[in-house]
């Protein structure tokens, strides 16, 4: 199968000289269309930096990324962001508190250049409906009028409205209650089902990675230390760090 995204020896260093910090060190992996890959690691493992590199919010110090075989450096940013979108950790911070949901969505649609009002409206409605929200009730709302779960749904709606090929979900559930996490993860599952979108799911919670993804990359100090299908990584982990991570997860049953 042809890869959607190929990441080749990607590195990013912050600062220089003695205080240089290599947040991401030579990360390589392939992502197939429609695949969900989880990047698991604790804070400081470089997983969020990797997310920002893939989103091109940050440029790599070294390495290369290919989107459908094309070097991403050759793709203009606005075009790239039509194919690659994001959902972030804190659904409150991701909103500009001064603007309504409608404005948030309309701004995202400007990526497609001028669209007829009718089409803009249709796209916004469709996206909100597909995450289980009622457009008429939500569009005029401001972030403080929405619950945490609703806010994260709106952010997912914003992303899928743009019909990207790849969605980078950077800890999309860690600011949410446990009772809401499954709901948001199910939403991501359904999005993949319906639109065939690939998802890179960044998380510190191996349980969530296990539930949602097809493959897992375990990151430790900027490097991918283990990679493989979910069952293999969780049930027969090889690397000592992965083993420790799994043994430190509290047992729930038994």
């Amino acid at each position: 199968m042809k890869s959607l995204l190929q990441v080749r020896a990607l590195s990013r260093t912050f600062g220089s000289g003695k205080r240089a910090l290599q947040a991401v060190k030579g990360v390589s992996f392939d992502l197939a269309p429609g695949e969900i890959v989880a990047v698991v690691g604790e804070s400081g493992s470089g997983k969020s930096t990797l997310a920002r590199l893939i989103l091109r919010l940050l440029s790599p110090t070294e390495g290369q990324m290919l989107l459908e075989g094309q070097d991403v450096q050759r793709i203009p940013l606005r075009t790239y962001w039509r194919s690659v979108q994001a959902v972030f950790q804190d659904p409150y911070a991701a909103f500009n508190q001064f603007y309504s949901v409608q404005r948030l969505l309309q701004k995202a649609l400007t990526l497609f250049g001028p669209l007829p009002t009718q089409e803009r409206k249709a796209r916004m409605h469709l996206a909100l409906q597909s995450v289980g929200l009622e457009p008429e009730r939500i569009l005029g709302k401001y972030p403080h009028q929405l619950s945490g779960g609703q806010r994260q749904r709106v952010m997912v709606a914003r992303a899928i409205m743009l019909r990207p090929r790849l969605l980078v979900a950077d800890e999309p559930t860690s600011a949410l209650d446990a009772s809401l996490r499954a709901t948001v993860l199910n939403l991501l599952k359904d999005v993949r089902q319906k639109h065939g979108m690939s998802i890179i799911f960044i998380t510190h919670d191996i349980g969530q990675a296990y539930y949602l993804s097809d493959r897992i990359l375990v990151m430790y100090r900027g490097e991918v230390v283990e990679e493989g299908p979910v069952e293999q990584v969780v049930e027969q982990s090889q690397h000592p760090y992965t083993k420790r991570l799994l043994s430190d997860v509290p047992r729930f049953h038994g």
Binding site: R52, L55, L57, L77, R78, W81, Q85, A86, F88, Q89, D90, A93, A94, F95, N96, L104, K107, A108, T110, L111, M155, R158
Partner: peptide
């Protein structure tokens, strides 16, 4: 994060 979201919207 809302600044990143705006960038990703092409602002």
């Amino acid at each position: 994060e809302h600044v990143d979201i705006a960038r990703l919207s092409g602002a």
